[in-house]
Simulated scan of single mutants.
Amino acid sequence: MAYANLNDVQTRLGRPITDAAEVDQVNAWISDVEATIQSRIEDLPERVVSDSVYAALVKKIVAQIVGRKVKNPDGKQNERIDDYSYGLGSEAARADLKPTEDEWEELAPGTSAGSEAFTIRMPLTPGVSERWVR
């Protein structure tokens, strides 16, 4: 089940993606991001079908991750040409296809604003697989 598509990425980028090779690449990246999210949230398909707000959230996050990759495929933070220099923050310069900690938090099942008064959050450890189940 696809949660986002090429049109979602184009809309968020603010430009069309028409080159055949780029279309194929973006579609592959969408599949990669969705697989990464699915690997951690086992009941993702059920949640998306039963909750339209959650479905829109997943679509937004997948499209923004792929959009980051399209804008900066090499993950450059700084670029300088003569007197001109351009810089991006570390989050904006990410070239991987993984959600940020904030995006994982948004996707976390059962979390919502105001419901975390007595919750202890453990930081995500890179390289450690976690699975969220309902």
Rank of each mutant, 00 (worst) to 15 (best):
L44E: 12
P45E: 13
P45I: 13
P45A: 08
P45T: 13
P45D: 14
E46Y: 15
E46W: 15
E46C: 13
R47P: 11
V48M: 11
V48H: 10
V48I: 13
V48R: 12
V48Q: 06
V48A: 08
V49A: 15
V49P: 09
V49T: 15
S50H: 11
S50N: 13
S50W: 08
S50T: 12
D51N: 10
D51I: 00
S52M: 15
S52Q: 01
S52H: 14
S52A: 14
V53A: 01
V53H: 07
V53R: 08
V53E: 12
Y54A: 09
Y54C: 01
Y54I: 02
Y54L: 02
Y54V: 02
A55P: 04
A55D: 08
A55C: 05
A56I: 01
A56E: 13
A56H: 11
A56L: 05
L57P: 00
L57Q: 15
L57I: 07
L57V: 00
L57A: 04
L57G: 00
V58G: 03
K59M: 02
K59D: 01
K59I: 01
K60V: 02
K60N: 06
I61W: 00
I61S: 09
I61Q: 05
I61G: 02
V62A: 09
V62S: 03
V62I: 13
A63G: 01
A63L: 10
A63Y: 03
A63P: 08
Q64T: 14
Q64H: 04
Q64N: 04
I65E: 07
I65R: 00
V66K: 07
V66N: 03
V66Y: 03
V66E: 03
G67Q: 06
G67P: 03
G67L: 05
G67Y: 09
R68N: 10
R68E: 05
R68F: 09
K69A: 00
K69D: 15
K69W: 04
V70E: 14
V70Y: 09
V70C: 05
V70D: 09
K71E: 12
K71I: 09
K71A: 10
K71F: 04
K71S: 14
N72C: 04
N72W: 00
P73M: 04
P73R: 01
D74W: 03
D74T: 14
D74V: 08
G75H: 00
G75A: 06
G75V: 03
G75L: 05
G75M: 09
G75S: 09
K76H: 12
K76I: 15
